[in-house]
């Protein structure tokens, strides 16, 4: 189905269930797909506020922020994700790269160290 149509459907769902973090995340993903970064960020932010422990939301939100050069915020989201799922190697690598970009080399080393041990 076309992304725009999909988006309209999801927005309808949101009107019906304005507190559903999944809807916010799904809208964020669709906006991300159409490269509307700003709005995607707003939806991911809201989804995160509603459920700061959801791995998908943490992953998506961090990815978007990272791409936007907001490494500090992305770093803390990756950290939160790793507290829930410390064995996710992909996120650990992403977190390592994020800390490198932030110039926090000690933190970056820690990420890679664990990655290597695992």
């Amino acid at each position: 189905m076309h992304t725009i149509e999909n988006l309209e459907r999801k927005l309808d769902c949101l009107v019906k269930e304005p507190e559903n973090f999944l809807h916010f995340n799904q809208v964020g993903v669709l906006l991300y797909q159409v490269k509307d970064w700003k709005n995607a960020e707003l939806y991911f932010q809201r989804a995160f506020q509603l459920n700061p422990m959801d791995r998908d939301i943490l992953y998506n939100y961090a990815l978007l922020l990272y791409q936007q050069g907001q490494y500090e915020k992305a770093g803390s989201l990756y950290q939160a994700y790793l507290e829930i799922d410390p064995l996710d190697e992909e996120v650990r690598e992403k977190a390592g790269d994020c800390y490198y970009l932030l110039g926090e080399y000690e933190q970056a080393v820690r990420m890679y160290e664990k990655l290597q041990k695992e």
């Binding site: 080399y105 000690e106 970056a108 080393v109 890679y112 290597q116």
Partner: peptide
């Protein structure tokens, strides 16, 4: 480089080249 940067560089290299610990 600082020790931390040198260590990061080394881990980076180790990860890519699978060298010994």
């Amino acid at each position: 480089p600082s020790k931390a940067l040198a260590a990061f560089y080394q881990y980076f290299g180790l990860d890519k080249n699978a060298m010994n610990e």
